[in-house]
Design a protein around this nucleic acid. Structure first.
Length: 554
RNA sequence: GUCUCAGUAGCUCAGCAGGAUAGAGCAACAGCCUUCUAAGCUGUGGGUCGGGGGUUCGAAUCCCUCCUGGGACGCCA
């Protein structure tokens, strides 16, 4: 549509026009599109006002109803009825595939997301990675890519040496069976408390990890047990969130895949000794990448290198996305650099998608110090609140517990996804549980109301449009923008674009049905019903792309 | 100290491929349930866009600089 308008303008303009020049005015009374003529003034040696007036006088196109010259702008008012009719037809016909593209042409994009650490509770921080990563996968899929979701479980590293040490010193089997994660977390916290006083504990922990890595059977058995118990707890949360994975290959999976990488680094002369550790030196200004500790045990970067190479071999990805907090930016830059030094061209296709931290009192939360908020508790609370709301607002509703779950989880998901990824978030339970205003339940409610009207209308087979009022037009303009929102969200790997879009559309629609009686106006009923149906299609699809459910009643 | 992200209404944020009077939500206040679910709608008040320079016809948006805060900077992940 924009292209057609642009062509119409081009035919009467002496200057070549580009798509970006045509903008949407901030205020609806200024029209649907506007062309600022200031840049042309110098070339044409005329005032912008005169240029605008000339264009307005001669521009003509079936989609343009009226053109006005205002202070050097060409303001265009479109032919609402024609555009609305075409758009509604298109959306009804394409249904959920409206806005899809085949840009990715089936190319695989691996996505590293969620990645909780075993023996530690699923925290609010992991929520961000999980829901952002999941939404990115859905967005890529809609654009024709083949996403592969990898849950890179944190199940290896010195932390396990520490945990094993703590368990052997202070733990017992019974407590772990009763409440696995809670007990293991307590042990982990105690370890760090005691290590403050007695730093030799840290050496003990490191030694225990070395033993684990060298295949000590006792240590392995304990490790395996802790891991099994942890995964059970995580699964409950993934079920609630509706997130699935294509691979659960965690850090331990790469235990036997690191040596070849280390060997290759050595063969290529990249590995150098530094203070007893083995490192790869990087460009000036960047700290070296640590590959092996002085005791010979591996590090995070070692495993990430092995994992990146393994994933390239396995999936032959066109892009590899890591949804990990922005405090790890340096780490990923280093890993990319090292891969580049190894001669892997594809290192360029690795993308770190960072996100802000969830803060408490302005500070980072720390598992080690026991400063942590549990996601499961937050979700449970949100669902309880949704249940209570249903009892008050719609007590006769069927399937109340399913709807409560969809709404409660939707509230938590949306409060996270609507914010720009990179912003730190101050944790606030009240904000997360909110159901009014710019929230997940607000979007779900708009969609439920739309379905409610449609249930009363029944089947419609054709419609004509006599006039599109302002409320309807605002809604239609937004519907028309959905494909662009999808494309931008996928290109920027940023789900918040869809979340904001969904809010805008829900607001426009709420305003429409709040001000227009649909059922009683029989002349306009078929057209409005068709419009409302397209709203449900696009709202439902928006919510799906965010990983949210969209109940038809609530 | 170096690198990096941020600073917009009382609070939480959007806008930042430069464009017309800087927008939402929450909170506050005032209306709207005998008409499609009030998780809604309609209105009111509320701003030196951190400070200062610069580029431009035009800057919240681009550049420089300073201030404030978060985070990362070798044997955690």
């Amino acid at each position: 549509m924009k292209k057609e308008i642009l062509q119409a303008l081009q035919s009467v303009s002496q200057i070549p026009l580009e798509e970006y020049m045509l903008e949407r005015p901030a205020h609806a009374q200024l029209g649907d599109f506007a062309l600022p003529c200031f840049p042309f003034a110098r070339v044409l040696r005329k005032s912008p006002v005169a240029i605008a007036e000339e264009i307005v006088a001669s521009v003509k196109h079936p989609l343009i109803k009226r053109a006005e010259a205002v202070n050097g702008y060409v303001n265009l008012f479109l032919n609402r009825e024609v555009i609305a009719h075409t758009l509604i037809q298109t959306i009804l016909q394409q249904s959920a595939s409206f806005g899809s593209t085949n840009e990715g042409d089936g190319g695989v994009v691996s996505i590293d997301l969620s990645s909780p650490n075993i023996a530690k509770p699923f925290s609010m921080g992991h929520l961000r990675s999980t829901v952002i990563g999941n939404s990115i996968a859905l967005l890529l899929d809609k654009n024709g890519y083949t996403p592969v979701k990898i849950n890179y479980i944190g199940d290896w590293g010195t932390q396990f040496g520490k945990l094993l040490t703590a368990y052997r010193k202070w733990g017992n089997e019974e407590d772990v069976r009763q409440a696995p994660i809670e007990t293991l977390l307590r042990l982990y916290i105690r370890f760090h408390e005691e290590a403050e006083k007695d730093s030799s504990l840290n050496d003990e922990g490191r030694a225990a990890f070395k033993a684990l890595e060298d295949g000590d059977t006792d240590a392995l058995a304990l490790w395996d047990w802790f891991k099994t118990e942890s995964l059970k707890e995580f699964q409950r949360i993934y079920d609630l969130l509706g997130v699935t994975f294509d691979s659960y290959n965690g850090e331990a999976y790469y235990n036997n895949k690191m040596e070849p990488v280390v060997q290759e680094l050595e063969d290529k002369g990249l590995l150098v000794e530094s203070d007893g550790a083995m490192v790869v030196e990087l460009e000036e200004g960047m700290p070296p990448c640590l590959i092996k500790k002085s005791d010979g045990a591996t590090l995070y970067a070692t495993r990430d290198l092995a994992a990146a190479i393994d994933r390239k071999n396995k999936y032959d990805f066109v892009k590899s996305v890591y949804v990990v907090g922005n405090e790890q930016s340096l780490h990923f830059t280093q890993v990319k650099e090292v891969l580049g030094k190894l001669g892997h061209e594809w290192a360029k296709t690795i993308v770190h998608v960072p996100f802000g931290l969830i803060l408490q009192g302005g500070k980072k939360m720390s598992t080690r110090k026991g400063k942590i908020v549990l996601l499961e508790k937050v979700l449970k609370e949100a669902i309880e609140l949704a249940k209570k709301n249903i009892k008050e607002k719609n007590p006769t509703l069927a399937h109340q517990s399913e709807v409560a779950e969809a709404v409660g989880v939707g509230a938590v998901l949306f409060s996270d996804l609507k914010q720009h990824r990179k912003h730190d978030i101050e944790f606030n339970l009240e904000t997360m549980l909110q159901v009014e205003g710019e929230t997940g339940p607000y979007v779900q409610y708009a969609n439920a109301r739309a379905h409610s009207i449609l249930r009363r209308v029944g089947e419609i087979d054709s419609f004509t449009i006599n006039e599109v009022n302002d409320h309807e037009w605002e809604t239609i303009k937004l519907l028309e923008q959905f494909p662009q929102a999808v494309k931008r969200a996928a290109d920027d790997l940023d789900p918040s674009i869809i979340a904001k879009y969904a809010i805008d559309l829900a607001q426009a629609f709420n305003s429409f049905y709040g001000n227009v009686q649909v059922l009683t106006d029989h002349g306009n009923l078929p057209y409005r019903a068709a419009l409302i149906e397209t709203v449900t299609i696009v709202l439902t699809e928006s919510m799906r792309l965010l990983g949210m459910q969209s109940p038809k009643e609530m």
